[in-house]
Computed example of a mutant assay.
Amino acid sequence: MPDPSVTAGLLLAAGAGRRYGLPKALVELDGEPLVRRGVRLLGDGGCAPVHVVLGAGADEMPALPGAVSVRHDRWSDGLGSSLRRGLASLPAHVPAVVVVLVDQPLLSPVAVHRVRAAYADGAVVAVATYAGRPGHPVLLGRETWPLLDYYALGDRGARDLLRDRPDLVVEVPCDDVGSPLDVDTPADLLRLRTLIDG
């Protein structure tokens, strides 16, 4: 019987950040690279182990205490391949994983705790929602991982799985804790700083 308190964390941080001009994992917010911020998010949310999928700029990444770096040489195949690479890297005893993206730095550890709690209550897939729309973090029970060989292709991760198998999905409202806004350009980062500064 899987232990519902055991959930790994998976940070997808392999992209080149073409619109930004450098890999978004290396972009800094308040002096901290987004990749380290993502590791901290998952750790503070109670995930262990935490794996980070790295691709573009992997050789320039800072040290990531508390995380396992997973190099993905085929990162240019898209988000789906990074997700599948990350899942394949996790130890066999891990029954579930919480997935987040490196370019969403305002996600909250509270949201991570909430999707983990939904798993402990029996959810197979738990997805944070904001204004009723699915976002991250997303928790995936191990029994769903083989399905992603079909769904996680190109730049698609688990989104189509969530759409096609609503019977598996528990939605977890997280409007009151953080924001799913992402950083695609330097202008986006300025907007996030404005939100943080109030």
Rank of each mutant, 00 (worst) to 15 (best):
A120W: 06
L195G: 03
V97L: 05
P4K: 15
V52C: 04
R36C: 13
E143R: 15
L147T: 01
V183E: 04
L79F: 14
G141E: 06
S82V: 07
L192D: 03
R165P: 02
V70I: 08
L22K: 15
P2T: 01
A152M: 08
L168A: 09
R19V: 01
L34Q: 13
P91N: 03
R193T: 09
E60Q: 15
P2I: 02
Y20H: 12
S89G: 09
V112L: 07
V6I: 10
L26E: 07
G135Q: 10
P180E: 13
A152R: 00
L140F: 09
L139H: 06
V6F: 04
L11D: 01
R159E: 13
P173T: 00
L34A: 10
H113N: 04
G31T: 12
L101W: 05
V53G: 03
R37Q: 13
G141Q: 11
P2R: 02
V110A: 11
P23Q: 01
R37S: 12
V177G: 06
D103W: 12
R40F: 03
L192M: 10
G31F: 05
A13W: 08
V170W: 07
P49V: 00
V183Y: 13
D197C: 05
G86Q: 02
A158D: 11
P33S: 09
V112T: 00
V94I: 15
V127D: 01
M61P: 07
D73T: 02
V39S: 04
V39I: 02
E28F: 07
R116L: 02
T7G: 00
D160I: 00
L22C: 11
V6A: 02
G141M: 09
L139R: 07
L106R: 15
T144R: 01
H72D: 13
L41F: 11
D59K: 14
V124T: 08
L11E: 01
K24T: 08
Y130R: 02
L79K: 15
A111T: 00
R159F: 06
L107W: 10
V177Q: 12
W75M: 07
G38W: 12
P62Y: 10
P33Y: 08
V124D: 01
V183S: 11
V53L: 04
G178W: 10
R142P: 03
D149G: 14
L90I: 09
H113I: 00
L147N: 02
R84G: 04
V172W: 09
V170L: 11
R116Y: 04
C174K: 08
